[in-house]
């Protein structure tokens, strides 16, 4: 699916309008720090949007707001055109089914005492799907594990998280996010805790899932190279504001905002190997 086709699709799956969020600083009410300042953005169906920025720019806060783990001070979050704050709790719960999240730390986001089967089946239990049909649930778990290339599933289904490597854990987390057939996955730095050799693997896996199921992603990262490889469109967040957005290639090749340029330069610093082996392909100006 080419990029311009995606961006011309009708109604966005997710839309953020004038999102503001501040936190108390050291419990002092008067001194609040603004983390997000009037953030506006949208994601189309099956589109991969990268949210990039350094640490402390508010990327993770934005993800937590979308997932309902925090509440914005003002502004609205629309999922498939409906404001998450305007619907009843029951409706919101039903909408949650279609947006899932993958967290940064696969060592923390999977409960220690549960088996892979229990972890991956958790969304089914929470949303009361196949509530009394353990066999059906197990089938779905096996499917989800196969999707994330943890096969044969019999090898993994009864294991505990501590018996898995970091990359396998993150794939279990991805399987948990996939089992409800979501239309949107928020991935908050899913690769940053993984060892380098596993990062590309996970990104390519997420890419395949998008092609197969038309899942849209909000991919949060500070790694420009991975964002470039994975995303259709990029949003650059700096000090709580989106300072630049555009098609991934355009942003990478022609960064306009000084902050984006600084990010680019920082990323280039680590790519001497590429410079010499693929001199032609390095196109940043």
């Amino acid at each position: 699916m080419s990029v311009d086709v995606i961006s011309s699709q009708g109604e966005p799956i997710l839309q953020l309008k004038e999102i503001r969020k501040s936190f108390d600083r050291h419990g002092a009410r008067l001194e609040r720090s603004m983390v997000l300042k009037d953030v506006e953005c949208f994601i189309h169906r099956a589109e991969v949007v990268g949210l990039i920025g350094g640490s402390g720019t508010g990327k993770s806060t934005l993800a937590r707001l979308i997932m309902g783990l925090e509440r914005q001070d003002c502004g609205s979050i629309l999922f498939e055109g409906r404001d998450l704050e305007q619907v009843t709790a029951r409706e919101r719960q039903a909408m949650r089914r279609f947006m899932q999240m993958v967290f940064q730390d696969p060592y923390d986001s999977l409960a220690q005492g549960l088996t892979v089967e229990e972890i991956v089946a958790e969304p089914l239990i929470i949303h009361r799907i196949h509530r009394y049909d353990r066999k059906k649930r197990r089938e779905l778990v096996e499917d989800a594990l196969a999707e994330v290339a943890l096969a044969p599933s019999s090898l993994f289904i009864n294991r505990y998280p501590h018996e898995l490597s970091g990359g396998q854990r993150q794939r279990v987390a991805l399987a948990r996010a996939l089992i409800l057939r979501p239309r949107l996955i928020i991935a908050d730095e899913p690769t940053s805790m993984l060892d380098v050799s596993l990062r590309l693997e996970l990104i390519d896996l997420m890419k395949r899932l998008r092609e197969r199921h038309g899942i849209a992603y909000l991919y949060i990262t500070h790694d420009l190279a991975l964002a470039h490889r994975f995303c259709d469109r990029l949003l650059v967040l700096s000090e709580g504001r989106i300072v630049e957005q555009g098609l991934a290639n355009e942003v990478i090749e022609r960064p306009r905002h000084p902050y984006t340029r600084a990010l680019m330069q920082a990323a280039m610093r680590f790519m001497p190997a590429i410079q010499s082996s693929n001199p032609v392909e390095l196109t940043a100006k």
Binding site: V3, H228, R229, L247, N249, A267, M268, I274, E281, T283
Partner: peptide, 13 residues
Amino acid sequence: QAALPRLKSKHTI
């Protein structure tokens, strides 16, 4: 080494 990040354009659109 194969997993090194590459910042290059995928193809020209």
